[in-house]
């Protein structure tokens, strides 16, 4: 088990390093000037620009910049943001919490809803319920996440006033609330963005859960349980669901990139102060160090997801040899 874990961790480290290297080269080799003001007619004096470039070492040859970046990285330093005048680690640190909260809740909700819907469908395949849920999940699965987000915002936020439109807290009174009140405040702000992310992914999980469940319901193991005269519901819950859960958990681990991609769109629609928005802003401002930093964090999150997926498979299925 330990050897397996060590191997996977080593591999995760290598893949994160590759992501960082690739992103670094991509942003530095891309045409464009990071230090130019974007205001029309406002000219940055060449001398100012040159000083700025020297300050960030952008006037050095690329291999030297890369070496310097790598050395800093090994000391845990991610460098300084060009635009925000502060360390990249601070920028990302502040944004990571909100993104993990949003992504984590969305993942959990989508798993619960997805498994439940998939199981309900598999319990009575080809019934009216199955067909109805099948059409529902198919359509949700096909809806662009930004479109769903816009609709939820306009309907539940602006038209019905049930939930706040944007942000993570109530700006005016959050600090004056009781601890429980603050939790409720954040939870209320979380509902719409998390729902936008979760609904689409729940549909994906449900579709997958249904088909794996049906597959395992056809398995010998289940036929034996049925032959023993166990009630159908029992068979489904105890035996089939257990067998089908591991693949679904694997899928959940592998869905991290989806949540990261969705967060770029959803965070900007709902003004959620997370990593997706930091990335988006940094890319448009050509804030090199922040771009590479966010790629690093995203790479780590994806690698962790993959690792969890591997572990889920290993834990659920003893046939998988851990030292492979």
């Amino acid at each position: 088990m330990l050897r397996f874990l060590a191997r996977r961790l080593l591999f995760a480290a290598v893949s994160v390093a590759a992501v960082v290297l690739f992103t670094f080269l991509l942003v530095h080799l891309a045409p464009g000037e990071p230090m130019l003001g974007s205001a029309e007619g406002a000219r940055v004096a060449p001398a100012v620009l040159a000083r700025q470039r020297a300050l960030f070492g952008l006037d050095r040859p690329l291999p030297e910049q890369l070496a310097r970046y790598a050395a800093n990285l090994l000391h845990g330093r991610l460098g300084q943001s060009f635009v925000l005048h502060r360390p990249v680690a601070d920028v990302i640190g502040a944004a990571l919490g909100p993104t993990l909260l949003l992504g984590g809740v969305a993942l959990l909700v989508s798993l619960l809803v997805g498994v439940a819907v998939g199981a309900a469908q598999a319990a009575r395949p080809r019934s009216a319920t199955d067909t109805l849920l099948g059409v529902g999940t198919l359509v949700l699965y096909s809806v662009p996440v930004f479109w769903l987000g816009l609709m939820l915002l306009l309907v539940f936020g602006q038209a019905l006033h049930w939930l706040p439109v944007a942000g993570m807290t109530d700006p005016a009174i959050h600090d004056a609330l009781s601890p429980l009140g603050r939790v409720v405040d954040v939870a209320r702000h979380l509902v719409l963005p998390a729902a936008s992310l979760a609904l689409v992914q729940a549909a994906a999980f449900a579709r997958f859960q249904r088909s794996t469940l049906l597959e395992s319901l056809g398995g010998e193991f289940i036929r034996a349980a049925r032959a023993k005269g166990l009630p159908e519901r029992w068979v489904l819950l105890r035996h089939a669901l257990r067998g089908a859960l591991a693949p679904t958990l694997t899928l959940a681990g592998l869905s991290v990139p989806y949540f990261l991609a969705g967060s770029v769109l959803v965070e900007s629609i709902f003004g959620w102060p997370g990593l997706g928005r930091v990335t988006y802003d940094a890319i448009f401002a050509r804030d090199y160090n922040v771009i590479v930093g966010t790629a690093l964090v995203a790479g780590v999150l994806v690698a962790l997801g993959n690792l969890l997926a591997d572990l889920a498979v290993a834990a659920a299925d003893p046939r998988v040899r851990l030292d492979r």
């Binding site: 602006q158 439109v165 944007a166 942000g167 900007s268 003004g271 988006y280 802003d281």
Partner: peptide, 13 residues
């Protein structure tokens, strides 16, 4: 609030 549409929705709400 980066999205203009959302920003105006916040004013209206």
């Amino acid at each position: 609030t980066p999205e203009l549409t959302t920003a105006v929705s916040q004013l209206l709400a």
